[in-house]
Each structure stands twice: as structure tokens, then as C-alpha cells.
Nucleic acid binder design. Structure first.
Lengths: 196, 196
DNA sequence: CGCATAATGTCAGTGACTGGCACAACGTGA
DNA sequence: TCACGTTGTGCCAGTCACTGACATTATGCG
């Protein structure tokens, strides 16, 4: 019954997350996921290229949203201001959907193979953000540098938030960019010519 | 002939790199690698946990070297100055060993699965660098932030170097940290409170 | 030379993933 | 209403990464 296609896909995602939580990623077979979703194992691999990808379906949307946030950010601001703007917007969605996406984080954090895949997705994200910055007129080299370092600060903030949920993610984010500015203020590459 | 163990290991690494270059990573089976190395397929998986890991054997040494460079950096300098110092030292080794490690880069760049693994190794590296900074007395939060963003700048520099080998990696590195400082100088989180 | 030990060979098995082919459930137009 | 192309699916065989268990061989040592 090829009713909708999207239905089976969604059932597979739910089933996979459930099983990854119950038995762990490595102890879950694709056949088990398919069985719980009520479809054939082959159907699973028709919807997702592999066992990991089933947890990263929303990644493209997140990337698109972030790119849009960067492009739509108010004009006349520096790259970091633009990124902070976009990240804060993204962080708001993150905080709102926390109860929904927290089990997903748990599974990913507990599974090396899934963390690898997550890092790969983040690399795509950084590239997309850099491209968005270029679209705003930021120079080639600066766009890449800003995207990479800005994302690093964002990742630091989210990690700090997980470790200390007492403060809001937004607060952690602001502090991260403040701290980054303070750190950079003390770096003088010229003087470092006389290295150790 | 279990002669040395390390010999077979080295032959496996050479054979793997050769085959990955000739046929591509996905078109190379573990059995083929083992055959070219003159050992059994099972022996391959005794030396390396999987097909990807065979290319990342030196990663632990690189990490150790970087940590040592951070710990041994001259006292009385800010985190970014320390990192720049350590990265420049690491970059020198990178430039010297370029002809040897370039084929490895080619294979990794051409294979998504290998890039994923590389990103995972980099994450370990960042954690180790952050720990080294903490050992120098840098505060918990700042150490992580500095390690992440500093590494991001380093990665940007290496990429810029690959795209433009006319300038030295060292020059790219210095420019990256200069640019990062300039970028940060224009970021004022307080004003960003009034977001888009 | 006998013996413990470490490295390897051999074999069977699980599970991720793929290609090919047949079949069923739609939508569409005649 | 019926042929028909499209799409999603089931089924099957096959490759290959990786693993556990056990037998075998080389190596160093007394």
C-alpha cells in the first residue's frame, strides 16, 4: 500500500528514534526499525541512505532557516553581528522545541557514529552560512573565517547550555560572543613573530 | 610469520593508501588491502578497528604534539596567543611533510566517509587543546571557547593554504588570527539585543 | 630443546546496504 | 469504466564490513 510514502517515512523516523533510545543505536537493526514501522527493511533504505541519516532529516530545513536568517539580518552590521543575530533566532527555536528534540540529542551524544554524522552536517551548515555571508557582500576569505569561528562560538554556547541549563541558551550565546571578543582583543599576531 | 606486528601494520597502511588512491575508498575491499600487504583480512581488523581508521594512525601523535606545544608555550600570554604559537609550530611540521601527506589529503577530501572520521578526530583534538589550556590556568569556559574558535581559524587557514599555496601556511595562519581579531572588534552583543 | 606468548590464519556468522524484478495502489485520460 | 503510466513497496539474492571462536605458527627465553 504505497499510500503516501511520506507516512511510511515518518513512521520509520519515529520507530528508529524509539528503538535507538530503548536498545541503543548499535543494538538496533534496520530490520527491527522497519518491522516496528510496519514496512519492509528494503523500504527503510529507500527512504534513508543509511541507519544514521534517519535522525538528520530536519537538518536541511535548519540549514535553510539559518541561511535565511543570515540573509535577512539587518543591513549595515559586521559579519559577527549578523551571525549572532541569526544564531539567536535559531537558538529560540531550539529552546522551544527542546522537549521534542532532547531524546534525539541523547541518542546522538551516546553514539560515536551519530556524532560523526552530526559533525558532517555541521560542516555543510558552515559552508552554507559562509555562502550566505558572501551573498551579503562579505569578502570571500572573511566569510569563511567568520562562519567557522562564529559557528564554533555557537557550538560552545549550546554545550555550555546543556551543562548549565539554569541560564538561557540566549544568555550563553551572548556571553560566548562577548568572551570571543575579549579573547581576540589580546591576540597580537605581530608580536607572536617571536615565537617560542 | 608474526615477525614484528608493527611491520604488517605499516604494510597495511601503505597498501590501503595506495588502493584508496588507485580505485577509490569505496571500491576497495578490506580483503584487497590485506592481500596487497601479504596478510589475512582478519589481521587487518586486528590492527585497525575499521577501514577508515587505517588513515588516521598519526592523529594521536599530532594531538599529543599540539597539546605539548600549548603547554610549553611561553608564559604570560593570552589563550589566542598561546594557540597561535602552537598552531604555527604544528603548521611548520605540516608544510615540511607535505609531499608525504598530500596523497592522504586527496583521498580524504574525495571520500565523505573519511571526512566524517576526520571531523571526529578534530573534535578530540579540540577537547585535548582545551584541556591543555585549562592546565595553563585558563578558565573552564574560556578554554573551551578559545580551543573551538582557535581551531576554526586554524582550519580556515589550512583551507586557504590549499586553495592558495603561493603564500605560506604560516602567512595564512597569521592573517586568519588578525582577521578574527578585526571581526571580533566589530561585534557588540549589547547592541544586538534589539535583534531583527 | 621445551614452553609461554604474541601475532596470525581459518571459518562461520551477523548485519548494513544494493540491484533487480514483480506487484499493488494510486492518478489520469479516453 | 477501463487501460495505462507512475510511484511506492515486497521479495530475493548477493556483496562486503566487521566479529567471535578456535587452531596454528613464529619468537624469545630458560
Amino acid at each position: 500500500m504505497p499510500r503516501s510514502g511520506a507516512e511510511a517515512r515518518h513512521r520509520l523516523q519515529r520507530a528508529a528514534l524509539e528503538l535507538y533510545l530503548e536498545r541503543g543505536f548499535d543494538q538496533t537493526t534496520a530490520a527491527e526499525i522497519a518491522a516496528r514501522a510496519g514496512v519492509n527493511e528494503r523500504t527503510f533504505f529507500r527512504h534513508f541512505p543509511d541507519k544514521r541519516e534517519v535522525l538528520f532529516d530536519g537538518e536541511a530545513d535548519l540549514r535553510a532557516a539559518l541561511v535565511r536568517a543570515v540573509v535577512d539580518a539587518p543591513a549595515g552590521r559586521g559579519p559577527f553581528e549578523v551571525l549572532l543575530c541569526a544564531f539567536r533566532k535559531s537558538a529560540r527555536n531550539l529552546e522551544d522545541n527542546r522537549p521534542f528534540s532532547e531524546p534525539r540529542w541523547k541518542v546522538i551524544a551516546a553514539t560515536p557514529a551519530l556524532r560523526e554524522r552530526e559533525l558532517a552536517k555541521h560542516a555543510l551548515l558552515v559552508d552554507a552560512v559562509a555562502e550566505a555571508l558572501r551573498q551579503r557582500g562579505v569578502g570571500d576569505g572573511l566569510a569563511d573565517l567568520a562562519a567557522r569561528t562564529g559557528w564554533a562560538a555557537y557550538q560552545h554556547a549550546t554545550q555550555a547550555w546543556v551543562d548549565d541549563p539554569a541560564q538561557s541558551l540566549d544568555a550563553h550565546l551572548l556571553r560566548a560572543f562577548e568572551d570571543l571578543r575579549a579573547l581576540s582583543a589580546t591576540a597580537f599576531p605581530e608580536r607572536a613573530q617571536a615565537e617560542s
